[in-house]
Amino acid sequence: MIEARNVYKTFKTPDRREVKALVDFSTQIKKGEVVVIIGPSGSGKSTFLRCLNRLEEIDSGEIMIDGVNIYDKKVNINEVREEIGMVFQLFNLFPHKTVVENVTLAQTVVRKRDKAEATEISRGLLHKVGILEKENVYPSQLSGGQQQRVAIARALAMRPKIMMFDEATSALDPEMIGEVLDVMKTLAREGMTMVVVTHEMGFAREVSDRVVFMDEGKIVEEGTAEHFFTNPIHDRTKLFLSQIL
């Protein structure tokens, strides 16, 4: 379903240094697979996620989604993005829209659903993430955990084939992490294809099919969550795990 082949991506820092974010990066993610990406900050894991829906341009290589090379100039990237939901670390809800409007807007604008149908779908999803009673309040009146659940509902409203989570729980107070992870676990059990950048090893152990450990733009080691808990091979992996566990 997702295939990255020999992807290179460099950033230029403001002082004109080059930072290699992805170096000859290749991987495959199958339909229905839940992949957790871990790694130290600056290892390129968020960059990889952002390349999957072309929020970043790549230097070379290709990324295929459902057999379509999304960096091909002929591809309408907006159509690709409709199929890939993304959840951000800082939620990025639309502050001038109410909760239900946040979930409804893209459905009407992009999917061209009529307002009533879209609102119906939104309310169903808000119910699913357990926040329907807040449908008419503005995001600023919600806690971080509640905002993130709305953000998940907003992404699901497009009926995406893939969901990506970019450190979705990193900005949350500890007591709110659980409620967001629960929603993500439900999705995983329903068979959603998921790419999850996170440090939550409990989540990885419970629902992931594969864990990928990245460092300096490359995959250092990959395997099941169990593999990482019991016998990680590389020293770099061991060091990282000892720091986060």
């Binding site: 939901g85 951000f88 953000a151 907003r154």
Partner: peptide, 25 residues
């Protein structure tokens, strides 16, 4: 810039994201 990114990741075009999300704010 997260507002633009969130809009674009939902499949909105640049113009739609400007019109519905960025300019009103």
């Amino acid at each position: 810039k997260g507002q633009m990114e969130a809009s674009r990741s939902l499949g909105m075009s640049y113009a739609q994201a400007m019109r519905y999300i960025v300019l009103p704010q």
